[in-house]
Computed example of a mutant assay.
Amino acid sequence: MPIDLRSDTVTVPTQKMRDAMRDAVVGDDVYGEDPTINQLERLAAEIVGKEAALFVTSGTQGNQVAVLSHTQRGDEVILEEHSHIFYHETAGLATIAGVQARTIKGVNGQMPIPEIVSAVREDDVHCPSTALICLENTHGDSGGRILPLSYMEEVFQVSRQYQIPVHLDGARLFNAAIGLGVDPKEMTKYTDSVQFCLSKGLSAPMGSILAGPKEYIKRARKWRKMLGGGTRQAGIVGAAGIIALEEMVDRLQEDHIHAKALAEGLACIDGIDIDAEGVETNMIMFFIDKLGVDAGEFIRQLNKFDILANPSGPFRIRFVTHRGITKDDIDRTIEAVKHIAAKKVNI
């Protein structure tokens, strides 16, 4: 089997999840009659401290439903310039929600507070209305960096001052919670809505959760239906989601330990530019421009060692640890990079 460091989305369900999926009690979720989905939504809402929750087919669908439920066409949304909602959701803000993105350059995913304040539109006939602030925790493009609680609180205070809701793209919310050593509620209390994935590190085969106030989730349910997310006997996959939330959160710490070990090993290799101290969760970003090869060639060299990875720029590589990665895999990857770097540095 290859060492697959492309993403934690490659995780497969556990045997217990497969058994639960086989035996799940199901019904028509569009009618609200799937008992397993109903159980999952109650559990998810309780975990993040919200009144209600909605099962959606993916994180992208969850984020788009969230925006639709907070905004009207022609509104403006404030978000970080490399946020997943803006950068990796195929222009859904514009094409689906019909809203305008107001992007702000962040540092490790954190938009400067004064710039958020400056981005809030005045009541002017020439301007769109600022309808939503979006945060992402952990922040993927920054290498899985965690937004501190103090920062989330500051953003929330600004949002209250201007009466603008905050949506959290928490695709890897539990990685952030484990990294901070806090209950997820300590983060989500500074949000009006939150989306988080059941797949990725939690290993469910599919699905995400959108959570928020009851009336908000009622609107979201209708938008989900419009987007084709009104599933029928969804409890078959929802059963795996329940196990993901009940049994798979604490083990994320192992992924963080592996990522830190990998980063520290890479930091000792000539030609690899990495901030090992900045690795906070299960994601690693590093630069290879000093090796004299681009990301595509570097990954082709990795493939010869049966290692899979993704580029994150012309000279930037991303590694993501997950349940399928062992300590031996980490050691083998470090040795492979040493071999590739030695060849390229000596050219």
Rank of each mutant, 00 (worst) to 15 (best):
L40H: 01
E41L: 06
E41F: 07
A44W: 02
A44M: 05
F55Y: 13
V56Y: 04
T57F: 05
T57S: 12
N63W: 07
N63D: 15
Q64N: 13
V67C: 07
V67F: 03
H70C: 05
Q72T: 13
R73G: 12
G74C: 11
D75R: 06
E76C: 15
H82Y: 12
E89K: 06
E89H: 12
T90W: 07
G92D: 01
A94K: 11
A94W: 09
A94V: 12
A101N: 13
N108E: 12
M111D: 03
V117M: 10
D124R: 10
S129Q: 12
I133A: 02
L135M: 12
N137S: 14
T138E: 01
L147V: 03
L149I: 11
M152H: 00
V155H: 00
I164A: 02
N175Q: 14
V182D: 11
V182F: 06
D183Q: 09
P184A: 04
P184N: 03
K185S: 10
E186T: 00
M187H: 04
D192S: 11
V194S: 01
C197W: 09
S199F: 15
G207F: 06
P213Y: 08
E215N: 14
E215M: 10
Y216T: 09
Y216K: 10
Y216H: 15
I217A: 09
G230I: 11
T231L: 12
G235E: 02
A239F: 06
A240C: 08
A240G: 07
L252M: 15
D255E: 14
A259C: 12
D270M: 11
G271K: 09
D273G: 02
D275A: 06
D275L: 00
A276Y: 09
E277W: 00
E280L: 07
T281N: 03
M283L: 10
M283H: 06
F286D: 00
D294K: 03
F298A: 13
L302N: 03
K304A: 14
D306K: 13
D306Y: 12
A309E: 00
A309R: 04
P311H: 07
S312T: 09
P314H: 02
F319W: 02
R323I: 06
G324Q: 05
D328C: 07
R332G: 15
A341E: 02
